[in-house]
């Protein structure tokens, strides 16, 4: 499977989706003008991955900021993960960032996937 490896920019996060190395990561800032367009390839990748999943998929979110449009797309990613057997989420938040912790709790409440919360 192809690897998605996007470098972070001022308004988009770093993204690594690598089945062989078992790295699934979105980190940094997500405030693109068109969130649906930015996340479309990621959703497509997950659809393809769904047919050839690893025994375990630990998806890491380590976000500093995201806008509300991105929150909808993050929920879409989580919805896809819901359909993937063995998927779990590691939700990182800065120890001083209760809003990001709460956002993770909110997401975990909306989808049926195990969430592991970690601070940095």
């Amino acid at each position: 499977m192809d690897v998605i490896n996007l470098e972070p920019t001022e308004d988009t996060p770093k993204v690594i989706l690598d089945k062989n190395r078992q790295v699934f990561e979105i980190s940094g800032r997500s405030l693109p003008e068109d969130a649906a367009e930015f996340y479309q390839p990621i959703l497509e990748w997950l659809e393809e991955y769904e047919n050839q999943v690893n025994p375990e998929t630990k998806f890491m979110f380590k976000l500093e900021y995201f806008n509300t449009a991105s929150s909808k797309l993050i929920l879409d990613i989580l919805s896809k993960l819901e359909e993937i057997e063995g998927a779990s989420v590691i939700w990182y938040f800065h120890e001083d960032d209760e809003d990001m912790e709460e956002a993770g709790e909110e997401f975990s409440d909306l989808v049926d996937i195990p969430f592991d919360f970690k601070t940095y």
Partner: peptide
């Protein structure tokens, strides 16, 4: 928080662009 949850929940089944307004907003 409850209102946010309600909107997000109603958006959940609409993957991608469908869940956003024509201006790309999530209504949040």
């Amino acid at each position: 928080k409850e209102e946010r949850r309600r909107i997000m929940k109603s958006n959940k089944s609409n993957i991608g662009k469908k869940g956003l307004s024509d201006k790309g907003g999530a209504g949040l």
